[in-house]
Structures are given as structure tokens and as C-alpha cells.
Nucleic acid binder design. Structure first.
Lengths: 134, 134
DNA sequence: TTCAATTTAAACACTTCCCCTTAACTTCAC
DNA sequence: GTGAAGTTAAGGGGAAGTGTTTAAATTGAA
């Protein structure tokens, strides 16, 4: 049973980083290359994101499936779809058009290519009108 | 870039589980054995724990190292050690003896064998007197 | 007790992750 | 431009995770 997502190496790097050391300095301390320190740090940050996303998913368990944004969709057309579907379900979406778009982008930075949805995104809504993505 | 920690299979099982289906029923739906459903569900829960622990770790980055509880230590002796060290640092621990022990056990269920610390546990404290473990 | 539900163990292919090196590349302040 | 910091790409060896099956063990309720 492993403890967390982060390896000892990754934690080590994050701690030194927090202290303000450069990758080069850390590389010397832990006897490796700066490129490797960069890789390790990046992996650590990636793992932290994945941890966040994992807990985000738990919310979708309590939420109902609202709709699917198909791949290729223009981000600006998403709000109308979402509002329409939410209205059908009798739930008021918690976000106005602008903040909805922002929430979509911020919560799924990797799933958009400019204004376009990369691959299909599942939208979930809970009774408070909060949105989650799967 | 993977999305979260949970695989599609794991999410699938969690969703069915949330609906109240038994492992046997799920096994039939997804065409596999009940033992396998059990394994997948267990892995999912394990992954969720790991996600939580990962985010917990971030707090230790803002916290100072307080002390190390050596392997084999009696859990009941931990509070005294922690209070003494915290006092040296001029920080007041946020927990009384009882809740401190509970917090130790609850936050590290796998790290104790009865009343004994399995392997050494690092204790971190922030300026609010909150404790974290690494 | 009996039966369904759940858990555990061992083993297997397969995939992914991790740390590392080397080498080249971008950024950016001075 | 120079130098320092950071990033990226390609590759390799080893470790760990995933889904699976089969078989046995445990739990828990009627």
C-alpha cells in the first residue's frame, strides 16, 4: 500500500523547490542532471493535478448526467446547450454565460484546443446547479 | 496526459456501486467475474485514498518539520513528544491529547499496528498548530 | 446452518510509470 | 550576445499498476 501519488524523489524536489532552490542546485544536491530534476518536478505537478481530478470525479457520482459536449464543438456554443438541458431537468445552472465558459476552460485545460472541444466531454450537474466534468 | 487516477473500468464500477448494485450484478453487466469487480472496486477506493493523501502532502510543504515518531513507538507516547517539540518551536498544538491520538490514527490508518507505530512517521506543524504527516 | 455477497491470494500478460542520461532547445535578464 | 534557468525529446532498464481468471476463504443475514 503506497502512501500517496508522489514518489520520494518527487517530494524531495518539491520541498527543495519550495525553499527557492533552482533545478540546477537541486540537481547537484541529489546528484543527477537538471533535466532530470525538471522531469521529476513536472511529473510531481502532473500527479498533483491528477489527484485533484480524481477527487473532482467523486462529485460526479452525486450528480446527474446532463449532456455530452461533442468533440469539435465551439466552446461558445456550450452554454446554450447546457442551459437548455438543465432547464429540461428543472435545475438552474449556477453560472452565467461568461463564468460558465471560464469554468469549462479552467476545469479542463487539456480538453480544449483554442475554442474547440478536443474529445467529447461529459457534463454532470447536481441539484445546486453546480457543474462537473467527466 | 491522463485525466485522473481512476481508470474507466474503475469509474464504471463505482457508478454502478453508487446505484446500489451488487458486485455480482455488476459482474454480469460488464461481463467478468465478481472477484474481478471486487478487485477493481478496491483499486478504485485505494486510488481515491492516494489522491487524498497526495493533496494532504501539499500542506506539509507549508509546514515545518516538527519531529519523527520512530518505528515501534507506543502511540500513547506520541502526544508528549509532539507537545514538547511544538513548545520548543513556540507553536501551540491545535489538538488536545485525545484528539491528537485520534488524528494520528485516523490520518494514518495503515501506519499503526495496534498501538504501535509501524515505520517512522514524520510530523509537520504549521503556524496554526495543525499537524500533517509525511 | 445455509446461501449470497464479499474478500483474498496467486499467477499471468500487458501496459504504464519512474528515474536516469544525453542532447538540443527556448526564455529571459544582464 | 552570454549565461543561467528551464524545457523538451528520445531512449532504456527496472518497477509497479491493471484487468483477468481460478480457487479458496470470510462475512453476514435469513
Amino acid at each position: 500500500m503506497k502512501q500517496g501519488l508522489l514518489t520520494d524523489r518527487q517530494k524531495e524536489v518539491l520541498r527543495y523547490r519550495k525553499k527557492g532552490l533552482t533545478q540546477q542546485q537541486i540537481a547537484e544536491i541529489i546528484h543527477t542532471s537538471k533535466a532530470n530534476v525538471c522531469t521529476i518536478e513536472k511529473a510531481a505537478i502532473e500527479n498533483i493535478s491528477r489527484a485533484r481530478e480524481t477527487l473532482e470525479f467523486l462529485y460526479t457520482l452525486d450528480a446527474a448526467h446532463l449532456c455530452t459536449l461533442p468533440g469539435g464543438l465551439d466552446l461558445l456554443k456550450a452554454p446554450e446547450i447546457i442551459y437548455t438541458e438543465a432547464e429540461k431537468m428543472g435545475v438552474k445552472v449556477k453560472y452565467d454565460t461568461i463564468s460558465l465558459i471560464n469554468r469549462l476552460r479552467d476545469a479542463n485545460p487539456d480538453r480544449f484546443r483554442g475554442r474547440q472541444v478536443r474529445d467529447a466531454v461529459e457534463i454532470y450537474i447536481n441539484e445546486d446547479g453546480d457543474l462537473y466534468f467527466g
